[in-house]
Design a protein around this nucleic acid. Structure first.
Lengths: 124, 124
DNA sequence: TACAATACTATACAGTGCAAGGTATAATTG
DNA sequence: CAATTATACCTTGCACTGTATAGTATTGTA
């Protein structure tokens, strides 16, 4: 599997988790499954990644947690988006879009400049 | 100016610098100017960001440096892409594309699920 | 004379992903 | 019954990266 490197993903895991919770409350284990299934072959996030991020999001009050007993007799910690979390998600989407603009502006334009240095003007 | 946050940009500055050097050798101060001009209103990288990154890239042998005296009597440290740097840039572009796939896959699909919970079936 | 622009450097901090290791219960398989 | 797998959570500590801060030195301009 061609994996996404840490550095590339950096700063976006929070956004991904918020986005998944946007669809409705869920818990860590399920979120991991969901995410990894959706990004099969590209991304594989372990629990060591997801749980700490969830805790951070809770600290920042972007999500809130509630323990609940599931049908299978297991305790699950359900998370849901808070109002602040919803706002943050909007911001994060914008940020993501802006990053796209920057990356495209730089990655593309240099590509075109490099093979044929400068054609303008009569000289050459 | 609506700025790109560190976390959003994280892991991509190296790619940006490599991309700019793809067009030909340059030096820190000029790279900064170039980058900031191209991303006016979105991105503003200080020297405290760019120089350390250049040093790291040099350590990793993705770029190589050579001091040269410029016409204005100033010493400039010119950087150029190495073979490894070129390869890294290719990889980074791929990584960037993959991140796009992941983000779109997650950010979009949840958006559609959230407003209207479940319409399939006859109940509701 | 003072200030801006050019040009580079070093140090130290904070945020983030994630590997590694741990606990505990239910369900399945040998 | 024993062993394994799946479920479900947690913590500690490392490495990487962006960047704020501060410092040096030269040239040109007001």
């Amino acid at each position: 599997m061609v994996r996404l490197r840490k550095q590339t993903l950096d700063g976006n895991v929070e956004t991904l988790l918020l986005a998944i919770l946007e669809a409705g409350p869920s818990y860590g284990y399920a979120i991991a499954k969901e995410l990894n299934q959706r990004c099969q072959g590209i991304l594989q996030l372990g629990e060591g990644t997801i749980y700490p991020v969830l805790h951070r999001l809770e600290e920042k009050k972007l999500i809130s947690a509630k323990w609940r007993l599931a049908g299978n007799g297991r305790e699950r910690k359900y998370y849901r988006l808070t109002a602040r979390g919803r706002k943050a998600l909007v911001t994060n989407r914008q940020q993501w879009q802006m990053l796209g603009v920057v990356m495209r502006r730089v990655l593309k334009s240099t590509k075109n400049l490099s093979p044929k240095p400068q054609l303008k003007g009569a000289t050459i």
